[in-house]
Amino acid sequence: MTAALYVIAIMALSVSLLKSKEKTILALKKAWKSFENILPQFLSILIIIGILLTVLSPEQISKLLGKESGWYGVLIAAVIGSVTLVPGFIAFPLAAALLKSGAGYMQIAAFISALMMVGIVTIPVEVEYFGKKAAAVRNIAAFVFSLIVALVMGVVM
């Protein structure tokens, strides 16, 4: 996926260079400026993720979402999903392992949905672009949505 992104970027850059050298240089300058603008927040997020993922390791998470569960477990799952930021290729195997170790589909659905849509850790970046109010509304709505997904999953699965 990353390789494809590079191929597309290099192709676009070449076409742009053929059409106008000045505009291409301007584009690269803008690219750097917008990158440097958000870099402090990005770097801060990386450190927070590192610490959070160490404290809330996959083993810890599976302990919290054990067999007892119920709606309490769904809520915990959604909260853990909201504060963690795990890439999908780790999250899905983790979710599959949690299922095997006794967590229910509802808890897993809440965890996965909140993980993807709610981003407490990335809120500083979101606020930078959308302001506090929009970031709050979107994240709360996404949190409620992940509970709804859990509910539907509980009925259908």
Binding site: T2, Y6, L26, K30, W32, L43, I49, G50, L53, T54
Partner: peptide, 30 residues
Amino acid sequence: KSLQLTWSNLLEMMSILPPIFILLGLLDVW
């Protein structure tokens, strides 16, 4: 452990962001 995670996340970020920002710059200009 957390520094290790931060480092591997940093590498991932640095590999994925350059093409995204270059495309954004081009989009902005063109």
